[in-house]
Every structure is written in structure tokens, then in C-alpha cells.
């Protein structure tokens, strides 16, 4: 619940605040292109402008509220002796996150770019294979089996079950 917010890292709230501020300002700048109107006859720019202003304000509030905590956290980090173990586990974590994003989103991109050309079956097979690289220790045998199974399953559900006009093999 909203009351027990003591446990959250002030750094995270500070970053969130910065992002909200940026989004708010961005929205306000974009909304300037639309007629504002007046309070009794609001134009299409009015509500987005108000919303942008509110988000930007909330973002600034978050920044101000967490600035002190953020400084303390940084000071503590600088004061403590650099711990190579923590650093390397952080690096492993970040690499893993980057890998997860690269291959999962890469697989989806492959699917999106090929579905209308090589057909559902090959597109899904490619998607599953690319996705599987997101985890370390990928095994070709089980991945290929899964890819074939998913291709058959999606054809059964989406092409024959729901009757979507999907090409199985492309044209």
C-alpha cells in the first residue's frame, strides 16, 4: 500500500521523477501544436496540456523529494571500498538483461518483418529459435522441437481454429 514507501530505493524514484518530468514537458511541447481553446470551449490541446503539466509537476516533486536520499546513497557508495564481487555480479545482471531484450525483441522483429513474406510456419520457427538464444545454455534439439511444435500449434489455432487469413507458406 502507499504508506510503506520507505523501502524503495530513492535512486529509482529519482529516475522515475526525471522520466515523468521529461514526458510531461514533451507532452506540453507537442500539445502546443493543437488549438488550446478556452476553458468553456476546450480545444484539442487543452486536456493534453493540463495532463502534461500535472505529470511534469509530479515528476519534479519526486525529484525534489528523493534528491537528499539519492545524494546519501551516492556518498555511501563512494565511501565504501569498491567491491569487485558486487560490481561483477551487477555486470552479469546487466549483460543478461541486454541479452534477454536483444533476442526476445529480435525474435518479434523477425516475425513482424517476415510474416507477410515467408508465411506463418517459417516465421514462427525463426521466432522461436531467435527467442531461445535469450537464455544461456540453449540446446538445439529441444529448441528445434519446440519451434516445430509451436509452428504446428499456431497454424492449428490461428489458421484453422479462428480462420485468420494467414499464409502458411508465403507466396
Amino acid at each position: 500500500m502507499s504508506t510503506n514507501d520507505q523501502h524503495i530505493d530513492p535512486t529509482l524514484d529519482l529516475y522515475s521523477g526525471a522520466i515523468f518530468t521529461a514526458i510531461g514537458l514533451g507532452a506540453m511541447i507537442t500539445a502546443r501544436n493543437y488549438p488550446l481553446g478556452s476553458i468553456d470551449r476546450m480545444g484539442p490541446g487543452f486536456f493534453p496540456m493540463v495532463l502534461g503539466a500535472i505529470i511534469a509537476t509530479l515528476g519534479i516533486m519526486l525529484i525534489v523529494k528523493n534528491l537528499e536520499g539519492f545524494r546519501q546513497a551516492r556518498r555511501r557508495k563512494h565511501a565504501a571500498a569498491p567491491d569487485p564481487e558486487v560490481d561483477s555480479s551487477r555486470r552479469v545482471g546487466m549483460l543478461r538483461a541486454a541479452r534477454s531484450m536483444l533476442f526476445v525483441l529480435g525474435g518479434m522483429t523477425f516475425f513482424a518483418l517476415t510474416i507477410e513474406h515467408i508465411g506463418l510456419l517459417l516465421s514462427v520457427i525463426g521466432l522461436v529459435i531467435i527467442c531461445s538464444f535469450a537464455e544461456t545454455g540453449m540446446k538445439w534439439r529441444s529448441t528445434l522441437l519446440l519451434a516445430l511444435f509451436m509452428a504446428a500449434l499456431s497454424a492449428a489455432i490461428f489458421r484453422y481454429g479462428i480462420g485468420l487469413p494467414l499464409q502458411l507458406w508465403g507466396n
Binding site: V104, G107, M108, F111, A112, V124, L127, V128, C131, S132, T143, L146, A147, M150, S154
Partner: peptide, 8 residues
């Protein structure tokens, strides 16, 4: 991979 396939 199955979930991502269904999502796509």
C-alpha cells in the same frame, strides 16, 4: 518462446 510466439 511459446509465450512470445502467442504474443506476436
Amino acid at each position: 518462446p511459446a509465450i512470445v510466439t502467442f504474443i506476436s
